[in-house]
Design a protein around this nucleic acid. Structure first.
Lengths: 210, 210
DNA sequence: TCTTTTAGTGACTAGGGAGTCATTAGTGTA
DNA sequence: TACACTAATGACTCCCTAGTCACTAAAAGA
């Protein structure tokens, strides 16, 4: 095939700084469609426009490439969460809906579902990675939800008991939906928005004042 | 390392009828702890007390062994669902709790989570299997939930709108919890009962009459 | 310009496990 | 008891890909 996609360019460029990010990006792109195990490092290399050996200058193994990719995404997630002023502008209802939509978009469109997939199926192989993902992404997400609930109570929109409500129950449907959507075509995708809205209604209906 | 577990016994027995079920049972046991991909067929053979070649008398490939295992479990699930009189004896609250507990037990203790794991991570490799699982297990489960809701409305325990409520939202937390429990030690396991109870309270709080 | 450093290369190796098949031996029948 | 049939065996082949390493050449600097 034609590896002359980028026409006028030296074959060998030394771009120490840019390589890791490019390799990670190529890897995630491929993992999204073929999965982690089924994607060969050689394909990743091709996708990033380097030779296989180059990957090993920056990552000591396929797994450590995966770790680095998770790390990169986690950082992005944290940044996003920090700018979450939008979550705390309007009503509790709006905040929940925005949050769910954020989760769904990051998972499905952003491709983060691939990390979950790998952790789910091969997590026992890298327990420390599972640990970090749990601590950094999941717990952080739960924390955001807890803040939304607390603020709702303060604003008088939620009953006081809502402060004790377990965030895992709030988040589970949004995550499950995203996962289902990438596995079972019929179950998750078609009406995600609709369903998330219904989930918000459920929560407000039970935890809301009146 | 001692394969003399069963002491006084011919090394080679011809038991055409029993083999497939034994092989499937051994396979599921191993998959539960090591995962699908990481379990070698030779280990499965050892677990079933046969040689590797024997597996190929009954299953044409590792994947078809997986399919057969899913099939066996699906049948079991259907049988269970058919005896679900216990689901429809008491109040809606009790029915929901029983159902959630059923799901959790089958997933975690029964080991069905391994099918979900494989479908999630490698589902794209056997689309027809995904299709069948979705149609037979998921949709069936959703149907049971719908029946519970409808009956709740009839009994005057749930608002009429509950009849329109999407079963996926009802089931998602129970499934997510089971999955989390097998991946993230801290997130799913410890207080599953407690959490499922809270989920029932949430549903009743929003969909219940009064 | 020549030299040094190191990013980048890709043919090669090593290891592991799925699937094969010629052989062995239970089991039912004549 | 001898024979035929086929369940069961496990050593072997084959393929696949992660990871290596001796080599190549881009850039920096003397």
């Amino acid at each position: 095939m034609d590896e002359n996609t980028k026409k006028t360019q030296k074959k060998r460029e030394r771009r120490k700084e840019a390589r890791p990010a490019e390799i990670i990006a190529a890897a995630i792109d491929l993992w999204k469609v073929r999965g982690f195990a089924a994607t060969r490092l050689e394909d990743v290399a091709a996708g990033a426009g380097v030779a296989k050996g180059t990957i090993y200058r920056y990552f000591s193994s396929k797994e450590s490439l995966f770790e680095a990719a998770v790390e990169a995404r986690i950082v992005r997630n944290i940044d996003q969460a920090d700018q979450s002023a939008e979550l705390f502008g309007g009503t509790t209802e709006e905040a929940l809906l925005t949050f769910f939509e954020k989760v769904r978009r990051e998972m499905v469109e952003g491709g983060s579902f691939i990390f979950l997939k790998v952790l789910i199926s091969e997590g026992h192989r890298f327990p420390e990675l599972v640990e970090r993902y749990e601590a950094t992404v999941l717990r952080r997400g739960f924390e955001v939800v807890r803040r939304i609930l607390l603020r709702g109570v303060e604003r008088g929109e939620l009953k006081p008991e809502a402060a004790e409500f377990d965030p895992r129950l709030v988040v589970a449907p949004a995550m499950m939906l995203s996962l289902w959507g990438t596995v079972f075509p019929g179950v998750g995708t078609p009406d995600a928005h609709q369903l998330l809205r219904q989930n918000v209604a459920l929560l407000i209906g039970s935890l809301g004042v009146e």
